[in-house]
Structure formats: C-alpha cells, structure tokens
C-alpha cells in the first residue's frame, strides 16, 4: 500500500520552552484508519494542527498526499478534510448555510456545492434539519454536521480530532457508524486522535500511543495487546500491612508483581493455569484472599504498561474551549 502521510522528525516548540511534539516520525498508509492515542496535552492536537497546515513546525518535515506541509500548504489543504475537536459551525446560521460556507472556502462553485451539500446532509441524516439554525441542534447532530463540512471537498485524507469528545455512549456509537459509512462511500484514509481506548481498539487499523510529545509505541491494536506478553491477575488480600509480593513472585510463570495497598497486579503467562498455583501458595501461608480477577490484556493494560498511568484528564489545555464544546454537546 502507498504511504499517504509521511512524517519525519516533526517537532513543535511553543514559546521556545514547551516542547509539545518531540521529533515524531511515522507514516500512514492509504486507506487505513490511523489513531493517535494519548492523554490530554500529549501532543495529539498539535501534531494534527501541523499536518493540516494550521501550525508551522519548529523543525522536521511531513508530506500529506505527496505535498509538503511547509512548501505546498495549499496542495495539502486541497486534498484533506478536517473535523476539529470543537464545534465550529456557526450557531446563528443554518446547517445548509454552514456547509455552503465551507464549500466556498474551498472555492467550489455554487452549482456543484449545493449538490454535494444535499448528498452529504442525506448521508448524515440531517436533511430534515438543513434549514434550521445550528443553535437548535443536539451534540450528535452538530458532530454530524462537522463531519459533513469536513467532506465537502471530497478529501483523500480526513483528519478527525477527538471526534466523539463530550458525546454520550449511544451518540458516540452512532457517530462512529456515520464515520464508517462515509469512509466506505468515499474511500478515504482517516487520521484520528482519541483518548477513548475502546474507540481506538474497535476502529483503528494501527495505533500510535503518544505521551509527552513522543510516540511510545506504534502497532495494530492486536499486536499491541500481544506485546504485553501475558495475562493480568488482580488479587486483593485481607491483610493490607503484610506484603506478600515475595510469595507471589516465587510462583513459576509469574513475570511481574505490582502492589497497590492490599491489591496486587500480577502479570503472568497462561493465566488460567497459573492463577490456581498462586492461590495455593497464598493460602498455604495463611493469607486470606478477598477478591480475585483474571483479565486478558486490553488496550487499557497496554496503555498502563507504556505510559505508566491510566488515561488521565489533564489540566492546562484550553479549558474554556473544552467547556464550550462540552456545553454545546450537552445541548
């Protein structure tokens, strides 16, 4: 498959001190859904903003559809569609007016843009609301309108920045079915960011885990899960002052033990066979077990493994923007 996005040592330093993206290199193949996964403030949006030519990189290069983001910005702009994190549609205008505005920004003549707008509104099931002001739209409807706007120029690559931020579970699922339908209809490559793990797991062909501006791991979701190399056994004991890590780690096929209060997170090979052995060892030593669970590695575990933390909500991003987005989503 052809590589449609090529990123080489891309770096962005804000105010000469804050390195938001730190020598990132990767490539995206034509036709795949490529996901950037990471906590808020990890550098996901900054990377997207450089690729869509809104931010100038401090150093490094990238090409999108063969156009350099620095030397041929307009070439990039003409071949991509962007669905930003925020709801950018104008509240005072109708859905149709908003789509036509986007079309005008691409210089698409009216005769053509009207046809396309109707087709897209149909596809995201907003035809009935085309002439209603966006003010009256729900969060899911706004997201669909943004999607339609992002596709007006028939892009080869669609950039989705946190496409389901602030939506409830059902609306999120619905939004994804729209995105899948649009992808099939127009045969695009999708570059997306998210901090919902299950979203990345279900949708992406490949995922890059990014934190502190660096790509920590890049692979398919399945390969990432396999790379954990083992199952996770969580054991909670009654005695919280008595450390039994030593006991557990003596059991064969136990690879790693992490203690948190009276709970032990044990990485083991062949969980089903090893779990009884651990139980035996503990009970022989008079340790009372209150809780036990065995889990196959999920992306959560992968994430924890590579970033050393669970997905966190981080402050210091533009809280105002996020608040507005969330407020509109709940509308």
């Amino acid at each position: 498959m052809e590589e449609i996005i090529q990123v080489d040592n891309l770096t962005k330093v804000f105010n000469k001190s804050l390195t938001a993206v730190d020598h990132v290199s990767f490539s995206v193949k034509e036709g795949e859904i490529f996901g950037f996964l990471g906590p808020n403030g990890a550098g996901k949006t900054t990377t997207i903003n450089m690729l869509i030519t809104v931010l100038k990189p401090t150093s490094g290069t990238a090409t999108v559809c063969g156009h350099s983001i620095q030397k041929d910005a307009n070439g990039v702009r003409n071949s991509i569609g962007v669905v930003p994190q925020e709801y950018t549609a104008d509240e005072d205008l109708t859905g149709m007016e908003n789509i036509l505005l986007c079309a005008d920004l691409y210089g698409i003549p009216r005769s053509e843009s009207k046809k396309r707008a109707q087709e897209l509104l149909e596809l995201v099931e907003l035809t009935k609301f085309a002439d209603k002001r966006v003010q009256t739209y729900s969060g899911g409807m706004r997201r669909r309108l943004e999607l339609a706007c992002g596709l007006i120029n028939r892009p080869r690559v669609l950039f989705l920045d946190e496409p389901t931020l602030g939506l409830d579970v059902q609306t999120r699922a619905a939004t994804w079915s729209y995105i899948k339908r649009l992808k099939e209809q127009y045969n695009m490559t999708i570059f997306m960011t998210t901090h919902y793990l299950e979203e990345a797991d279900n949708l992406c062909d490949r995922i890059a885990i990014i934190d502190h501006g660096k790509i920590i791991k890049l692979d398919s979701p399945d390969a990432l899960k396999e790379s954990i190399d083992g199952d996770i056994l969580t054991v909670t004991t009654k005695e919280d002052d008595n450390d039994v890590s030593g006991l557990i780690s003596k059991v064969p096929k136990v690879k790693e033990v992490k203690k948190q209060n009276s709970t032990y997170r044990v990485k083991v090979e062949k969980g089903e066979e090893t779990a009884p052995l651990i139980l035996n060892a503990l009970m022989k030593n008079g340790v009372t077990i209150t809780k036990l669970s065995l889990s196959k590695p999920t992306l959560d575990e992968v994430y924890l493994e590579y970033t050393g933390k669970t997905i966190r909500e981080e402050e210091g991003t533009d809280m105002f923007r996020q608040r507005i987005t969330l407020r509109r989503a709940r509308h």
Partner: peptide, 14 residues
C-alpha cells in the same frame, strides 16, 4: 480563534 472556527478556516485553501 477561541471557538475553533479560525483553525478550521486556516485548514482550507482560502
């Protein structure tokens, strides 16, 4: 700028 419309416009060839 605050509501993100500016970024959206900047990502188009306008």
């Amino acid at each position: 700028r605050r509501l993100g419309f500016l970024n959206k416009a900047l990502s188009t060839p306008v």
